[in-house]
Amino acid sequence: MRVGVITFPGTLDDRDAARAVVAGGAEAVSLWHADADLKNVDAVILPGGFSYGDYLRCGAISRFAPVMNLVIEAAGKGMPVLGICNGFQVLCESHLLPGALTRNSDLHFLCKDQEIEIINNATAWTSSYKPGEKIVIPLKNGEGSFQCDDETLAKLEDQGRVIARYVGQNPNGSRNLIAGITNERGNVVGLMPHPEHAIDELTGPTAQGLGFFTSILNAMVK
């Protein structure tokens, strides 16, 4: 099982994401933003960071990187895609996921250990969790406030496409405490907090983020 991890200029968390992929039991394959080749990967992770310096809007330039054309096409055919933080922003800009991520409501860049509740475990990236399971993983972003119109929000809720919610006080002003969502098919997931930074207790607050990376193996075995 090969999981691609894309590096854009300005990506920060590609190494941690690759390390998490390996810890989850798959092979990590580095992909470069300018590649016009997905190197036969079975799934793709868009890691966090500040791709293209967050110029224009977070993810707005990355969305047009050559490798993204292939990711968008493959996602349409059902390939699992996980966007974390900046990766979530790229997925929204790519219209693979609805809504947008805007400036945190208090304007501060956040960096903290955040409790989230897994709401939907029927996606390619969340099957290792139980619905309602609460985990603590790092949240670090400046533009993490999930926004969408009322109609989209109602659709996301009605279709069970909110995959995780913040527990406790709303950290960034996201509508309905949304920390992560999925597409209709459940293969594309965007998540604002960082499971790849919480795969062992030596370097992370917990090892509870590992489930995202073991889930993808379950999805492939099926």
């Binding site: 805007t102 400036r103 945190n104 409501s105 208090d106 304007l107 406030s145 926004q147 119109d149 002003g173």
Partner: peptide, 13 residues
Amino acid sequence: MLKPEILDPQGNA
């Protein structure tokens, strides 16, 4: 411009 219904924390600041 941000749509009127979208929160603008920078404008508020």
